[in-house]
Amino acid sequence: MIKFHPKSSTLANFVEGTLPSVNSLIISAHCDMCPSCLDKIDELTQVAANGVFSNDIVESVTHRDYISMFECITREQSLVKTSIVETRNQFIEVDGRKFSLPKSLARLTGRIGEWSRLVGKLWLAPVDVGGPFLMQLLYMEKGGYVPEHTHKGNEISLVLSGQFDDGSYQYSSGDYIALNQIHTHTPVSISDGGCLVVVCLDKPLQFTKGWANLMNPLSQLYFKVNTH
């Protein structure tokens, strides 16, 4: 059961296309897994469409710009063949386990880099989406954890499989989590099959406790930016 969802205002921005594209990708993947948010998206899209087209003060289309536009469009007689999207499932493999990806992320499978195993039974693979954002797949083996940390920027995550506990809440498959500077947490995987999360960051993590502090200079390990 999915318990954590994006805020309605975030969904509305998604519908209007005003969220950063990488955030939108995570929202889109959440909606692949969450029928209730998918319904909300449909409603919000209708609301947005009504907002755009309910305008009473409308000019007529007699202007020559409209006439020539109409002519130009209708000169093309045939229907255009559209691109066909593969809707087959995509799987990824880590630590000998296979996971399927929601269809919004399945299109990214070609952009997933090598998995590397870090301390704390933790695996990371970069997802090359370009731009200022960093997207990563994070896999925690059972009992695996990310040392206590806070965020210098925004962190948006979606649990793709399994469960983790971050000291405040337990998150399961499909849960959407948006955190920022005010949140400090220590995510620990609590499911037998481990836990796979897609994480999107705009700034590196800041480790806050004990020996993990030592990792701050290395925190780009958790924020590997692809330069190519």
Binding site: G17, P20, S21, V22, S24, L25, S28, T82, S83, I84, V85, E86, T87, S104, R107, R111, D128, V129, G130, G131, P132, F133
Partner: peptide
């Protein structure tokens, strides 16, 4: 520079097979 286009997010004009 983000490599995400509208079809990735909202495949409105794509035929699903």
């Amino acid at each position: 520079k983000e490599d995400v286009c509208s079809d990735d997010l909202w495949p409105v004009l794509c035929e699903q097979t």
